[in-house]
Amino acid sequence: MEKPVVPQGIMTKCPRCGKPIYTKLLLKNLKTCECGYYFKVSAYERLAMIIDNNDFKEFDPQLFTRDPLDFPGYGDKLVKTQLQTGLVDGLVTGLGRIEGEPVMVGIMDSSFFMGSMGTAIGEKLTRMFERAIKEHLPVIIFTASGGARMQEGIFSLMQMAKVSAAAARHSEEGLLYITVLTDPTTGGVTASFAMLGDVILAEPGALIGFAGPRVIEQTIGQKLPEGFQRAEFLLEHGFVDRIVERHELKSTLGALLKLHRQHDLHKAEAMELAGNEPG
């Protein structure tokens, strides 16, 4: 699968420990530094890390926002960001396999308008859930979002209801939905589909919350304690099932998918096995 790759230097400096790392090696290490720092991962990088052989059938790759408010300056900024990132909007959806298990996957990309959710993202996610219902498949969404796409105003707000509705229908069919919360997951995304997973995983240290820390500090007029709204804080308060290291993410997702394999399929396989046994 050929996708535009943002050119990078030969070396990348770790913002936490300052160590320079070969960019190629960084990708091989799933964009983590020895010091424990997690670099942000683009949607296509994440795909390569998670999907078997990077063999992915992308859905609606050209779906873009129609700028519903006709918001001043938004159109130009969109085009600029599209050229800069090589993305049409901040989400990639499609079908692939993880450890052999077929699954529909949505990955948000925080480099596109800070991963904010507008109508394009809402529509693509909804379509993915609807496809997954039809094809009876589980869904995994990697969230990375600063919240609502301000330039799409009330339409952005309505995407929360729309995507949550599709997720609720998918759930009614008895199908599995996993969310993986990555840094940062805030605002309208947290207050909708991010928190609706049957299983909610998070990357270590990810900022996860409804209100952003700065907004809270302004509201309450005091500094927030260390670690507030980090993945570990959410685990402590009961809102995340597991914190999963990046290098264990694929195997954890694979295990979860196997545990939720559709029963009829399971039974058919078991019967086939039994039938093959002599006597």
Binding site: A168, A194, M195
Partner: peptide, 26 residues
């Protein structure tokens, strides 16, 4: 708007709103 504060985050403001969206729809 929903309250932005420490307790609200500790008790899952995002989860509470999300559950209402899905719950009302069904």
């Amino acid at each position: 708007g929903a309250y932005c504060g420490i307790g609200a985050e500790e008790r899952g403001q995002g989860e509470a709103i999300a559950s209402n969206l899905a719950g009302m729809m069904m």
